[in-house]
């Protein structure tokens, strides 16, 4: 799946976009975030407070219980501040 990071999530993880294989046992966004946290200090820091992380799957806003599967485009970002 394709995973994207925006704004300070990109700064903290040091990644803007990557392709990853769905890790074993991960089937929703919450599981994916837990797995990402274990990757590095930067990822742990970026995902330490889930209440300030917003998620989109296939470019639609979703909640952490949304399912994920290979082929999905998953994006993580802070609450939006446009306008």
């Amino acid at each position: 799946m394709k995973v994207l990071y925006f704004a300070w999530l990109k700064d903290k993880t040091g990644v803007s976009e990557e392709d990853i294989d769905l890790p074993d046992g991960v089937n929703d966004v919450a599981g994916l975030m837990a797995w990402l946290r274990g990757r590095s200090d930067g990822f742990a820091d970026a995902f330490c407070d889930e209440s300030v992380v917003r998620i989109a799957v296939n470019q639609e806003h979703v909640a952490t219980d949304h399912t994920v599967s290979d082929g999905d485009e998953v994006a993580f970002f802070p609450p939006v501040t446009g306008g």
Binding site: F77, V80, G82
Partner: peptide
């Protein structure tokens, strides 16, 4: 439109 855009459209200001 402007109220919705501010909370739904994926833009971030630095």
């Amino acid at each position: 439109l402007i109220d919705w855009l501010k909370t739904e459209a994926p833009f971030w200001k630095k």
